[in-house]
């Protein structure tokens, strides 16, 4: 059996981990297990390892054979294979497609639920308010209540201006 990482040496380290009833197995040679920190289990999780392996393939596929390079930090997809970590926050946009399937196996969902920084909370709230007002406006127009519609139109305009300010 050959090592899953270098595919050259004979695998002597065999790891199995069961997460959410899914069995994940990985076979490594001595050198790769050392490099991946398997002998220092403090921060080690097989998910990280599997991540490095599976994700690279996914990302390769989604790139359609081209080699993607992050325009922000210069991170290449081959770097992901080595480190199992991304280069910068922008990398998530670039490798988004390739990561999707992986995130599905790793996490409960693929969309964030939970804490939102205040800055985003504000814009989120304004955005929702805007949608609500626009619906009201449409209804007012179709009901031919033009005075109300005129008021709503001004409110929408104000809100748009505010939203622009926050985003900028």
């Amino acid at each position: 059996m050959l090592c899953d990482i270098c595919k050259q040496n004979f695998a002597t380290v065999h790891l199995t981990q069961i997460v959410c009833q899914e069995t994940k197995k990985i076979d490594l040679c001595e050198a790769c297990s050392k490099e991946k920190g398997v002998d220092d289990p403090t921060g080690f999780s097989i998910a990280d390892l599997l991540l490095g392996l599976g994700a690279t393939q996914e990302i390769d596929q989604s790139a359609g054979g081209k080699s993607l390079v992050c325009p922000h930090c210069g991170f290449k997809q081959s770097d992901f294979k080595k480190a199992g970590r991304l280069g910068c926050s922008e990398c998530y946009q670039l490798f988004n497609e390739g990561l999707e399937a992986l995130l599905k196996t790793m996490h409960k969902g693929t969309r964030h639920v939970g804490k939102v920084p205040q800055f985003y909370r504000q814009t989120q709230d304004l955005g929702e308010e805007l949608q609500r007002l626009q619906k009201k406006l449409e209804k007012a127009i179709s009901d031919e209540k033009f005075e109300v519609a005129a008021m709503l139109r001004d409110e929408v305009r104000n809100l748009r201006a505010q939203l622009k300010l926050t985003v900028a």
């Binding site: 991304l86 964030h112 920084p117």
Partner: peptide, 20 residues
């Protein structure tokens, strides 16, 4: 200025920590 995306949450070096 935190790295955050409305879809993926807080962006982390390793995707295993993504989101919260």
């Amino acid at each position: 200025d935190y790295a955050y995306s409305p879809e993926l949450g807080y962006l982390t070096a390793c995707p295993t920590n993504l989101g919260t």
